[in-house]
Amino acid sequence: MTLATDAAAGRPSVPRRSIRTPYPTWFFLPAAVIYGVLFLFPTLASLFFSMTRWTLFNWTFIGFGNFIQFFNEPFLVGGLINTLIYATLTSGLKVVLGLLFGVLLTSEIWARDYLRSVVFFPVLVSTVGVGITFTVLMHPTEGLINESLALIGVRGPGWLTDPRLALISVALVDVWKGVGLATVIYIAGIVSIPRDYYEAARIDGTNSMQRFWNITLPLARPATVTVVLLSLIGGLRSFDLIWSMTRGGPGFTSDVIASVIYKQYQAGFYGLSTAGNVVLFILVALIIVPLSIFLNSREVSR
């Protein structure tokens, strides 16, 4: 409203209609209604329904019963741990590989445009399509990956059939699909670093490793923050790749919270499914909020 009064003070003779702010709050309305009804309200309602036994038509309030059940079932707790492993692994690998590719693809390497396109394209491809393709490629005996390994005399593992490996294999495919995004984010970050810094450092007689550690890495920090946060958010709520590759199997060894939510929903345990959803909210909030405050507070001064 300050704007409107300023304008009025400057031109006291204009009629009242045109003094109104040109930035009306009702512009929020359509977006706010859709967001409020279909996102915000269900999110708030989930806090209540997570404490009920629920059939969508009627509910019985059971307090923290669903949460107690959630943390007592080994496979549900396993889902929680797997979510953490999956998110950390994919996020870590995306940062390391994304930075590596970013540095490589901003250097004067051959066929730079080809390499950028090839690394980035999987980002746009359907996750389910990627999942199906890699399920076939990762087949323990007839998959292309193990057949190629056999050619050089290595006996490949059962990528998706070995209980200890299934989650990691899916995470690797996730990295394969998502590293292109991390790479283009790093490329944007690295390109924005002024060239003079590298020139000055070169004149001072530094080698390329020193320039990487002392210029590129600290000054690409905004890119690192973006990649870490984006891939953690994505990793914590990841569902489609896991579902299309293993359905949480073998057993429950590659179940994550998002797939637990879906399984409980399918089984008709709506209250328990919603409790899983609340656990996921809390997990995301507990990790992302402090992390983003921490990462954004330590901006490097240029």
Binding site: Y35, F39, F41, S273, T274, N277, F281, V284
Partner: peptide, 18 residues
């Protein structure tokens, strides 16, 4: 709220209910 929408996963079953 924009940031909340960016970060938070949707609550599935309550959304179906709505």
């Amino acid at each position: 709220f924009v940031l909340v929408g960016l970060i938070m996963p949707p609550a599935v079953v309550p959304t179906i209910w709505v």
